[in-house]
């Protein structure tokens, strides 16, 4: 086993996915197969090989510091699941005592 059911449950918590028990069973078995297959990258002798993070040759890109029109509150809130007083309404963040 490359990954256990408990580890999958931990990953689901980290990734904010409230998975059902049967999903955990299924994903644990499937992820075990996938991780075993992708672990083949470890066969490559890569000592001293630099990593590539991107297909393009990345450089920082600046734009001129000029104000351009942006979305107004109405457009920004138009697709919000909940809005109040021109703001996004979100569920509680902390715990009330």
């Amino acid at each position: 086993m490359s990954i256990t059911r408990d580890e999958v449950a931990h990953l689901a918590r980290l990734a904010r996915l409230a998975l059902a028990d049967d999903e955990l069973d299924r994903f644990a078995a499937q992820l075990d197969v996938i991780i075993t297959a992708v672990a083949r990258v470890q066969e490559v002798a890569a000592a001293g090989i630099p990593p590539t993070s991107h297909a393009a040759d990345l450089r920082n890109v600046f734009r001129d510091d000029v104000i351009t029109p942006s979305l107004g509150a109405e457009a920004a809130l138009a697709q919000a699941p909940a809005a109040e007083q021109d703001r996004f309404r979100v569920p509680r963040i902390g715990v009330e005592d």
Binding site: V8, A15, L19, I35
Partner: peptide, 21 residues
């Protein structure tokens, strides 16, 4: 967590967890 569990399909969940791993 409830929204992402209900809103994403199985392959997306698999890949999110694989990437998190």
């Amino acid at each position: 967590s409830l929204t992402r569990a209900a809103g994403f399909g199985a392959e997306v969940k698999r890949r999110i967890m694989l990437g998190t791993y």
